[in-house]
Design a protein around this nucleic acid. Structure first.
Length: 103
DNA sequence: CTCTTGACGCCGG
DNA sequence: TCCGGCGCCAAGA
């Protein structure tokens, strides 16, 4: 075809991920795998890479691991933001997984 | 073009 | 409970 690249640009994937993260309401958290699944492109690792590149422009603290544990970066900073948003934390230091299941 | 790494996910020991 | 290994997809060297 005339279009040199029929595939979506890599930046488009980034935009999709940022859109999903930005769509996460306060008091809610989404796992990397869940975001990757919603985007339907690549895997959870690329979601982390997008956060590493543009995470500063999105509520990355609402993005947690599949276990409900906060982001590995900014040690403790993520938990502080989540608590401020009203996220229910469990005594084990992870977010309430029940909230993750509820859409 | 090939190899390694990475804000991960899941399984086994 | 903690650690290591394997898999998935993409970007960097």
């Amino acid at each position: 075809m005339s279009s040199p690249d029929e595939s979506a640009k890599p930046d488009e994937y980034v935009d999709a991920v940022l859109a999903v993260i930005a769509a996460i309401p306060a008091g809610r958290v989404m796992s990397y795998g869940a975001i990757a699944e919603v985007v339907g492109r690549a895997g959870p690792r690329q979601v982390g890479r997008v956060l590493a590149l543009h995470g500063s422009d999105v509520p990355w603290w609402r993005v947690v691991h599949a276990d409900g544990a906060p982001a590995t970066c900014h040690d403790g900073t993520a938990t502080d933001h989540l608590v401020a948003e009203g996220v229910a934390f469990r005594p084990n230091g992870k977010v309430d997984l029940a909230v993750l299941r509820r859409s």
